[in-house]
Every structure is written in C-alpha cells, then in structure tokens.
C-alpha cells in the first residue's frame, strides 16, 4: 500500500467513514460558496484606511494625480532620500517616461545587487495597509523583494476593503490564482535578536507607495 493510501486510510478510519468513496458534495458546495468569515467593522474609507495602516507599518505614502506623474515622484523620492536613481521596474511599467525623469529603470529580472525596484500591484487592501502582488511575466516577484528599496505604484481605484475582496477580484478577473500571490505589508523586518524590531532583514529596507488617483 502506498503511503498516500495508508495515511488517507487512517484518516478515514479516524473519522469513522463507513464507505470507501465518501460523498464530496458537501465540501464541494462549501468550497464553491467560499463564504466570507469574520471581518473587523468597516467604519473607514478604504483609501484613508490603507494609507494610515501602510504608514503605521513603516511604509511611506504619497499621492499623484496620474500615472504620467509617477516617474517624477519616484525621482523626487530617490533624490530626497539620497538613493540611487536607477534600478529595475516591472515590464508592465516600461512605457512610463523614466528617462525624462532622469532615472535609469530597466525592465528586466531583478538581480541580487539591484538597489531600487519599482512595481505596480494587483490591488491593495485597506484593512491592513497591504499590497497584493500577483506574479506573472510582466509582474515578476523578485522586483519587490531583492532591492533594498521597493517603490509600489497603486491605483486608488484598486484599493479594496478586505483580503476577501482581493480574492473575489482575482476570481472575477482571472478565474484563479497566479503562481505566486505576495501580500506585502511594509519593509522586511525581524525581531529575532532580543525582540528588537529591525528593518531590512532579507527584503527591502523601505517601501514607498505612490497612490495614483
């Protein structure tokens, strides 16, 4: 008998199953319904909540009125913070006028020594101030992870109240999950040494969010 069958056999016997092929209708209908569970009260406006929560998680947030204004905002942020003015960006952002803003943004896979990564996001979650990144050819996961500075462009129309709304959006727009969904809530951190919170454990030291809307 395979280990699979042995394990499932023990599980079935523990659950008191009488038949060898139990009816899956009940679990299938539950999965199909995927009911939303308990959420905190929604006594906030999503954009304000997103912003407040993201800042509480040590991200910085600014807002511009159009996508065209993003390269300028990125340039200002990098210069003010004395950060390098070049790095990688998602292929989905390649058409922005980076050169016009004085930036050298390359739409290639991120390398270990890239210092700045500019990404968009699939959507953002107000409840926790979280970015939801969906991996894909034009939205690679490493760009938000390897560089020391992660700049994320967020369309305010894509700020949803809760994580459940993000799943609903993915189901509606794409019919399922991409290879990787990464929820990002602020800079990478650790508190392993004496429970002292330290930023930049393995991922970015800083996350800057540019709201567009």
């Amino acid at each position: 008998m395979s280990s699979r069958d042995a394990i499932l056999g023990r599980v079935r016997s523990a659950l008191g199953r009488k038949v060898s092929l139990p009816d899956t209708a009940a679990i299938e209908s539950y999965i199909a319904a995927h009911p939303v569970g308990l959420q905190p009260p929604r006594d906030w406006e999503p954009e304000l909540r997103f912003r407040a929560r993201a800042e509480a998680l040590a991200s910085t947030v600014e807002k511009v009125s159009s996508l065209q204004a993003v390269p300028g905002a990125v340039a200002r942020y990098l210069v003010v913070n004395k950060l390098p003015t070049g790095g990688v960006c998602w292929p989905s952002l390649r058409k922005l006028d980076w050169i016009g803003a004085g930036l050298g943004m390359e739409d290639r896979p991120a390398r270990g020594d890239d210092l700045v990564g500019v990404t968009g996001c699939y959507c953002a979650i107000a409840e926790t101030g979280t970015l939801m990144l969906a991996s894909g050819p034009d939205t690679p996961a490493a760009a938000s992870l390897l560089p020391e500075t992660h700049i994320a462009v967020v369309d305010t129309a894509r700020i949803v109240p809760f994580m459940e709304d993000a799943w609903a959006l993915l189901r509606a727009e794409r019919g399922g999950l991409p290879r990787a969904v990464n929820f990002v809530s602020g800079p990478s951190r650790t508190a392993d040494i004496e429970q002292t919170v330290t930023m930049g454990a393995h991922g970015p030291y800083r996350v800057h969010i540019i709201l567009v809307g």
Partner: peptide
C-alpha cells in the same frame, strides 16, 4: 510583513519562480 500563496511552479514565460 509577507503572506505568500504559491500555486504550482513557474510558467514558461515567467522570469522567476
């Protein structure tokens, strides 16, 4: 900070994974 949900290996046209 991170919640990562992984579904299957990388697609042929993805640059990472």
């Amino acid at each position: 900070n991170y919640v990562s949900v992984h579904t299957g290996p990388k697609h042929i046209d993805e640059s990472d994974g």
